[in-house]
């Protein structure tokens, strides 16, 4: 890391109780505390959140898009995992 620059952090915000934290963007901060405070000022100026997660960008390990075929396509053929795969006789509800 350059001395002249703060590390990059990915910011996740929970917009209200009951919802998951959602990625909103990134920012720079020298430490985790500052990352959360900066996120408060940058990403919740209009009451967009009630909880903030900050993760240093270098700690995010991501899947490789060139492997998307082998990672995600096999599940496309497993249609039996979805309820619509099954026939339910008329007159049956709540199933």
């Amino acid at each position: 890391m350059s001395k002249k620059e703060w590390p990059l952090w990915e910011i996740f915000i929970r917009s209200k109780a009951g919802l998951s934290h959602k990625h909103v963007g990134s920012l720079r901060a020298a430490d985790a505390e500052m990352a959360v405070e900066n996120a408060r000022d940058v990403y919740t100026r209009r009451s967009e959140g009630i909880s903030i997660w900050a993760v240093e960008s270098k700690d995010v390990y991501a899947s490789d898009p060139t492997e998307a075929d082998s990672l995600f396509e096999p599940s496309d053929s497993k249609v039996y995992r979805h309820p619509t795969f099954y026939d339910v006789p008329d007159g049956i509800s709540h199933m």
């Binding site: 703060w6 920012l27 720079r28 901060a29 500052m34 405070e37 900066n38 000022d41 940058v42 100026r45």
Partner: peptide, 11 residues
């Protein structure tokens, strides 16, 4: 001094 802090000070 840096964009993030500019925003904080304006708040």
């Amino acid at each position: 001094p840096i964009l993030e802090e500019d925003i904080a000070m304006t708040n």
